[in-house]
């Protein structure tokens, strides 16, 4: 039984322009799985199909013995809350404190009424402080999220995703808005999570070298299809040419 299995996934926003063609991916192991490919090839769409932010046109996504592509309402939300997601633009609630942003990771486990009254469980609050400590932001817990730098915000985003106690983690270009040094720090953090906490982590990433350095498996996408799926060491320049097209950028 895989942690996540994508079978025959297709998606088209406009019927005549399909984005994803027959994607088949099974994820069994913890660690970072990097998805590389040119812009507009459907990497983000693929991640958003996995937690059904986008309804795929056809195919199935088997997670926790259910097909995410088919469920609705409460059962969808109960699956979603076990899938953490980290975004390129962090997507924090800017006007709330860092701590409260982390606590929003528990929204899937509580009623709206309790969320309104900020009635978080004491163990959730303890855990939020632990996670902030883990991502190195304990001193910032009471600050507003919009007072943080990009790298710090991304750490809050990761803490929020972990707050869900996720079985898998999706990261959509988590380093694309960050400087090279901060990017490495964020990838280190994701790597620690993926291996030490045993959470399979799918990362969309533009930086091929960063992907090679941290991933234990790489998926290359081009034109909405998976064109490579295997160990990072197996990726050759030929593969990169197929994925991105052209070769001048390889020097």
């Amino acid at each position: 039984m895989s942690a996540l299995e994508i079978r025959g996934l297709n998606h088209a926003y406009v019927a005549s322009k399909p984005i994803l063609h027959d994607i088949n991916i099974a994820i069994n192991e913890p660690g970072i799985i990097a998805i590389i490919g040119p812009s507009g090839t459907g990497k983000s769409t693929l991640l958003r199909c996995i937690n059904r932010l986008i309804q795929p046109s056809s195919g199935s996504i088997i997670f926790q013995e259910a097909d995410i592509a088919r469920v609705q309402g409460r059962s969808l939300r109960e699956l979603r809350r076990q899938i953490g997601m980290v975004f390129q633009e962090y997507n924090l609630v800017e006007r709330l404190s860092v701590l409260e942003n982390v606590l929003t990771g528990r929204l899937g486990y509580m009623s709206a009424w309790n969320a309104w009254r900020r009635k978080f469980k004491p163990e959730d609050i303890d855990r939020a402080f632990e996670l902030l400590d883990f991502v190195g932001l304990s001193d910032f817990a009471m600050q507003r999220a919009d007072s943080l730098s990009g790298g710090q915000r991304q750490r809050v985003g990761i803490a929020r995703a972990l707050m869900q106690a996720p079985r898998i983690l999706l990261a959509d270009e988590p380093t694309s808005s960050l400087d090279p040094k901060t990017s490495v720090e964020i990838m280190e953090l994701l790597k620690t999570l993926a291996t030490d906490r045993g959470i399979p982590t799918l990362v969309n990433i533009h930086d091929v070298n960063l992907a090679r350095r941290y991933a234990q498996r790489m998926i290359g996408m081009s034109g909405g299809k998976v064109v490579y799926d295997g160990a990072p060491s197996g990726i050759t320049d030929d593969h990169l040419k197929t994925i991105y097209g052209g070769e001048s950028w390889l020097q």
């Binding site: 932010l53 699956l79 633009e89 997507n91 929003t104 929204l107 969320a115 985003g157 929020r160």
Partner: peptide, 23 residues
């Protein structure tokens, strides 16, 4: 983006309204 992020945590529509739109 914030709305999407809170939907992704499995929050109900009412919670998304209260925690993503309202603030």
């Amino acid at each position: 983006g914030t709305v999407e992020a809170l939907k992704a945590t499995g929050a109900s529509p009412a919670s998304v309204l209260l925690k993503a739109y309202w603030p």
